[in-house]
């Protein structure tokens, strides 16, 4: 049902970036995901909302291949990637960020982004220092700009504030040629100013890059996405435009009344 709603809305947009067919993931007896059907068009920006433990991160892990799904198929731009290892999915333009920042604390901000750009290129064993004119280096500089981190370009990452680390976490997903990005709670722990900055960064991403953003804060989700999927107990239970979701009584009861932080 919900999948059909999404499909009809996106009929004219052609190729899907992501298609999930009855994806499930069990951890022993625990059913973390079940019966997930999702169609996301290329360039679409989708928010996934749901209370703690709803299975949002598990959904991301299934898509990136960090944990393979127990059941179901996943297609990325029409290609079945269900059985591909994570790095093969990265080569195809899939990127993700983490709920808890996964950065290289001992390296500078620029070097972190440089490596993220380098990950899918050749000559990764080079013993030569990258020149400023190096293509990956130049991409890193422009990403640095895109995530508003120029002022801390050469600062070791362990010295950054939490907000800056979250911004860098986004930058790490922009290296290479991303086509679709999974953002896992990028706004968690950010101040109101930092949130505004984040919204600006996301809205300024090139139009061809689609994403799914997991977000607890409905206000943020509404301003960075065109369409919202609600998750609860490992299931998708509602999809709609931000306005529909905001005014849905069931959503208000389960999610907003669910006592989340």
């Amino acid at each position: 049902m919900t999948a059909n709603v999404a499909a009809s809305r996106l009929q004219d947009s052609g190729a899907y970036a992501l298609e999930l067919d009855s994806v499930a993931r069990h951890f022993g007896a625990l059913v973390a995901l079940t019966g997930i059907n999702m169609r996301i068009a290329a360039g679409e920006r989708r928010a996934v909302l749901g209370s703690n433990g709803a299975g949002k991160t598990t959904l991301f892990n299934a898509i990136t291949g960090d944990f393979l799904p127990t059941e179901g198929r996943i297609k990325f731009f029409g290609e079945d990637i269900t059985d591909l290892p994570p790095h093969e999915r990265i080569r195809r333009g899939l990127r993700r960020t983490y709920q808890i920042s996964q950065l290289f604390g001992g390296l500078s901000v620029l070097d972190n982004i440089y490596l993220a750009c380098r990950g899918v290129s050749r000559k990764r064993y080079s013993l030569i220092r990258p020149k400023p004119s190096d293509a990956n280096r130049m991409q890193a500089e422009s990403i640095l700009h895109a995530v508003h981190l120029e002022s801390v370009r050469d600062t070791p990452v362990s010295n950054l504030s939490h907000g800056q680390q979250r911004q860098l976490e986004i930058a790490m997903a922009l290296g290479g040629a991303p086509r679709f990005i999974l953002f896992d709670e990028p706004a968690a722990g950010l101040s109101p100013t930092e949130r505004r900055d984040l919204i600006e960064i996301l809205n300024a991403l090139p139009a061809h890059i689609g994403y799914i953003i997991i977000e607890h804060d409905l206000d943020v989700a509404l301003r960075v996405s065109e369409y919202v999927s609600m998750m609860h107990n490992g299931k998708l239970f509602k999809e709609g435009t931000p306005e529909e979701i905001e005014n849905d009584p069931q959503v208000q009861e389960i999610y907003l009344g669910g006592g989340h932080g």
Binding site: P86, L107, Y114, L115, V120, G175
Partner: peptide, 18 residues
């Protein structure tokens, strides 16, 4: 740089394709 990054966070290194 890759070596130091692996020291700091091997998981992320794998995730970006190394």
């Amino acid at each position: 740089l890759t070596l130091q990054a692996i020291r700091d966070n091997p998981r992320r290194m794998r995730a970006i394709g190394f």
